[in-house]
Amino acid sequence: MNFKSALAVLVCGLGVASMSAQSQEQLQHATFISNGTFLGTVPSIADQLANGTFIPAENIQGEVNPKRADTPKGVPGKGALGGPDPLMERQVAHAGSRMATDPLITWECATSGATPSDPTGAVGPDHFVNSWNSAFRIWDKDGNSMTPAASLATIWSGESSGDPIVMYDSYADRFFISQFAFPASFLVAVSTGPDPVNDDWYTYEFSVDQFPDYPKWSLWSDGYYVTANKNSGNAGNTEVIYAIERDLILAGEASPQMVGFPLPDIVTAGFYSPLAFNGNGSVPPPAGNVPVTYVQDNTWAGVSSDHLKVWTVNVDWSSPASSTISDPEIIETEPFDGWFDGGSFSNLPQPSGPDIDCLQAT
């Protein structure tokens, strides 16, 4: 999928009003360059179950991350639509014309009392790996459990801080699991083969300048990319988007590189979560030109109209200091409201139990 096609998919749900491309000649170089630390090759989950080193999941109750950052902040009355949401009305009007497909199979994967539970998962050819705060479990695709629920510390000794992300790297036929760690780092593990039960895991730590809350990972042919909810209020001048050297990680090499960039001209309002595009399918995208996008809501201070911003990252692993990020391309959208309930993290009522978090500013 090329960049323009990907943008069309991204913005179709928001209703594009116009696109105003700022000059891509305005580039900033990487402002952060470092190397990850290889923590070692961790034995497979099957081996750990056999030798008694497997660590069962904890029954966590209550707040997992006491450093969870501020809620999104809007300006009451600013940018309000003042009537029905036109995009919602459009969706309702066309609901009857959409074909619904029943799922082939469903099953209960996990029950968690953690706040937030942060569920995540990825499907490969033969397995489904799901994770939550602060555990994971592996299933076959018929819903049969292949392992008990495991603490994240089964992969990273002594570390089960949380905010896990699971990806299936279809271009390498590997599984990827991550979490954050205190005081300020990303922990990464990649399976040594396609079987997350019987294959070992290469494990790494990548340190950054501030605690990387709410990390969100993406797959591209030339790297694994991650954003974090950090440096809010100064995200245009300090690192928010990072790339790590995928080829070396897949090979279990000792010192994969990491580069980081700010997001020029971004506006944030407390909690925020930009995201790099994610490669999918059997053919990897060409290296470079990785889009990173974030919504800009006119209920926030400093934003005059609803729009998206899209930056382009190009990493040069042979000369990391030459890596660049562009100024943003601005995509005007139909008006929308993305801030509600005062920015609360508990805003979606459930039939029973506490309200859950329908994330805002993401």
Rank of each mutant, 00 (worst) to 15 (best):
14 L>H: 11
149 A>M: 04
68 R>N: 14
340 F>P: 05
93 A>W: 11
120 T>C: 13
127 H>E: 12
56 P>I: 06
250 L>V: 14
333 T>W: 08
16 V>Y: 05
165 I>Q: 15
115 T>W: 15
303 V>W: 04
312 T>N: 00
213 D>M: 01
344 S>E: 03
43 P>S: 09
21 A>F: 12
35 N>D: 05
20 S>E: 14
252 G>D: 02
280 N>Q: 07
57 A>K: 10
161 S>L: 12
11 V>F: 08
114 A>R: 02
314 N>P: 10
236 G>L: 06
142 D>C: 15
16 V>G: 01
336 F>C: 04
198 N>M: 07
70 D>K: 01
171 Y>G: 00
242 Y>M: 00
86 P>C: 11
345 F>E: 02
203 T>C: 02
321 A>N: 14
40 G>Y: 00
228 A>D: 02
299 T>D: 13
15 G>W: 14
333 T>R: 05
305 S>A: 10
223 G>V: 07
22 Q>E: 09
344 S>W: 01
79 G>L: 08
278 N>I: 13
271 F>E: 11
303 V>Q: 01
59 N>A: 09
98 R>L: 14
247 D>F: 11
126 D>H: 13
26 Q>R: 12
334 E>L: 11
87 L>R: 15
104 L>I: 12
217 W>P: 01
317 W>T: 02
174 R>W: 03
57 A>D: 10
144 N>R: 10
164 P>A: 04
316 D>K: 09
263 L>H: 04
43 P>V: 03
197 V>Y: 03
290 V>A: 03
50 A>N: 14
360 Q>S: 11
289 N>F: 08
281 G>K: 04
361 A>E: 15
92 V>I: 15
314 N>M: 10
229 N>K: 06
276 A>D: 03
195 D>F: 04
174 R>D: 09
43 P>Q: 05
143 G>C: 11
177 I>H: 00
326 S>A: 07
94 H>S: 13
283 V>A: 10
275 L>M: 09
305 S>F: 14
73 K>W: 06
107 W>Q: 01
33 I>F: 10
78 K>D: 15
358 C>D: 11
220 W>G: 01
272 Y>G: 02
177 I>M: 08
96 G>A: 11
355 D>I: 04
83 G>D: 13
79 G>F: 06
100 A>D: 07
62 G>M: 06
99 M>G: 02
249 I>Y: 00
83 G>H: 06
233 G>Y: 03
289 N>L: 12
36 G>M: 03
186 F>A: 01
229 N>S: 10
102 D>L: 15
121 G>A: 07
48 Q>K: 05
78 K>V: 08
135 A>F: 03
129 V>T: 00
206 F>Y: 08
34 S>R: 15
95 A>H: 11
52 G>K: 01
186 F>Y: 14
233 G>F: 08
239 E>C: 05
26 Q>K: 15
186 F>V: 02
3 F>K: 09
282 S>N: 09
358 C>S: 12
161 S>Y: 13
194 P>R: 06
313 V>Q: 05
256 P>M: 05
61 Q>V: 13
72 P>Y: 03
164 P>W: 01
64 V>F: 08
2 N>M: 04
19 M>C: 12
240 V>W: 08
258 M>T: 00
249 I>N: 00
353 G>R: 10
126 D>V: 06
67 K>T: 09
155 I>M: 02
159 E>F: 04
